[in-house]
Design a protein around this nucleic acid. Structure first.
Lengths: 352, 352
DNA sequence: ACGAATTATTGAAACGTTACAATATGGCCT
DNA sequence: AGGCCATATTGTAACGTTTCAATAATTCGT
């Protein structure tokens, strides 16, 4: 141990560390060129596996590069080619409570691993102009492509990016007639199936808490729920005092109050974990028991409901899959593939 | 609507979009120089607010830049200065179940907003060499600084980064004698307080599920729990069949089995939400009731337990604060501030 | 009004890479 | 052996910025 820490402190005491670390120069193409006696151009092309370069030369260069520990300078490549090799992920990081951002990011990086692209987080300033983040990315060429969520039916970002011909994939589809790359979850199907499930359990006064009305998926959920309820002749209440962006305390308080009324709902659809958990808590607080006087069907993106008692019916939305799909599609979009082939709608995975 | 979508489709049909979007050239320093009749150098320095440049000239340049919509080319700056203006966040994205990655990222971006730095996610390949990610970042100069978590007592990454004099902040402190920037949560205090709380409730056979033994905070938790239990003359069981990285199903199954034995624990400490929820589920499944035959104290990073019934005692670990602190400290580290001043230990926020 | 000191601006070079056009090398045919 | 193609390699320029050293413009003391 002594030796280790000694070595540490001596080497760390050398010079006041500056940003970016030490200045020891890394090998460049020129270094390899000098080493092999070839021209810089040849080395560059050899490393790019240009078939124009003789195979033996390529091997020679490759060997020298490895021996010297050469690693290309992204900044120089970027300056020269104009490609950043960066994918910008526009995220709102304020509002999440049980966010599954990490699933989305996980899937995205999974798709991008080995492609040379990296993922940069672009924090979306809530409340500011919807467009500003994306515009910033395009204007400063902060990436070769962009991914965002919380899509609106006529999202200005979609319009802008189409106009700019800038590659992107939206999480959530729009109402634009021009096709654009998007990955979405069939929330309409989810709502329909949830309603049908509750009806099958004999429930007649349903309730669903929706996302803020401006988001695309709020519409889909509404359509699905309302249509299915109507078809079966039951009611489906949609509170407008609360939505999925309301605080959990607010949601719970409202639900508690609602459940204390005589015409209380007997079936609740939880879109997302927080909403469903708030419903379960409110139900418990009201002295009711899920499965007896009331039922809950929820969408889940994690295994959380496996740990909840009592257990409820759930459908899965695989956000990791969504992230991975978006990554794969963005790659294809950046290669110029037609947008009409880059539209995916994932179906709910029903678990009951 | 017609007009909008028409405009979209016509503009989108123009040319096959290529990676990075259109080629319309952006204004550069040269453009501004030509526009103002000044030299490129002057423009550069004016925009950098160099006091050497006359104030009136600075204003002139600023105006021209704004008028033309100039935005500096990061790649060129990067190539010239060697600074990437990127912070790499090394994250393992495989393993999380209820991950609060978004809190960490949120805090980090909060601290970095307006500084010109952006956060890039570097996916840590689990199972591979611990060092490889960080080495990659340093060698390819993928960032000016790096942040990582899941720190080990003698984490090789810390040693390497100190040797390389590369700025970093670790989430979790180490046992190295050389100081280095780190942000940690006082898990020892958490464990101690949790044990004391359970003892105050009359519990005598405690149990705590720890993280995998190789992580720093596993040690801290162990010390805190064991010492407090010993001081009070109660037992504190530490299962080694399961740990915090075990699957929730595994954890729950083991706990269920354990709770069915005659010498079952009467107090459980939940380090992290999943572990606590698994405990609660197992307790419920065993026909026991928290608050009656058994108690649970948990650490929480979200409001999730506000939605759980029955309610349990919790202490808060603010991961957003941790992220923000790490961001602020990394900025200072990159400016050369001494590591001894960049060590923070956040205390548990006790809620009972 | 003149040189000296200060202030303000400039030119040239460089960061490391890739793209283009040009040259060198070799093989093959007549 | 000369000429011609195909193959393999090279030199030069450029991407947009910052830095260094040098020049131009201004102020000041005398």
């Amino acid at each position: 141990m002594k030796t280790l820490t000694d070595r540490l402190s001596t080497s760390a005491d050398q010079l006041p560390r500056r940003a970016g670390g030490r200045a020891k120069s890394r090998p460049t193409l020129r270094t390899i060129a000098a080493e092999t006696g070839l021209a810089v151009t040849t080395v560059s092309r050899a490393l790019a596996l240009d078939p124009q370069i003789k195979a033996s030369t390529r091997a020679l260069v490759r060997a020298a590069a490895d021996r010297l520990g050469y690693v290309p300078d992204r900044a120089a490549q970027r300056l020269r080619t104009g490609r950043t090799r960066v994918v910008q992920l526009v995220l709102n990081l304020d509002h999440e409570f049980l966010g599954f951002t990490h699933e989305l990011i996980g899937g995205l990086t999974e798709a991008l691993t080995g492609t040379g692209y990296s993922v940069t987080i672009f924090p979306d300033i809530l409340g500011s102009d919807r467009l500003s983040s994306v515009r910033r990315i395009v204007e400063a060429r902060l990436g070769d492509g962009v991914i965002f969520n919380r899509t609106e039916p006529f999202d200005p970002r979609v319009r802008y990016l189409l106009e700019q011909e800038f590659p992107f994939v939206s999480h959530g589809r729009t109402e634009f007639s021009t096709p654009h790359p998007s990955v979405d979850y069939d929330n309409e199907a989810f709502a329909r199936i949830a309603v049908e499930r509750l009806i099958a359990k004999g429930r007649k006064r349903l309730l669903i808490v929706l996302p803020p009305a401006n988001f695309s998926f709020a519409q889909h959920l509404r359509w699905g729920a309302v249509a299915a309820a109507k078809a079966a002749g039951v009611t489906c209440e949609i509170p407008d005092a609360i939505n999925l962006d309301s605080s959990e305390a607010e949601t719970m308080a409202w639900l508690r109050q609602r459940l204390s009324q005589p015409d209380r709902p007997d079936g609740i659809i939880g879109v997302g974990e927080v909403s469903a958990m708030a419903a379960l808590a409110a139900i418990s607080d009201s002295g009711l028991t899920p499965g007896r006087e009331i039922d809950v069907v929820a969408k889940r993106a994690s295994a959380i409901f496996d740990l909840m008692r009592p257990r409820i019916d759930t459908m899965v939305e695989d956000l990791r899959l969504a992230g991975r799909t978006m990554g794969e599609m963005l790659l294809r979009a950046m290669e110029g593939e037609d947008a009409s082939r880059l539209q995916v709608l994932h179906q709910p995975l029903v678990e009951f």
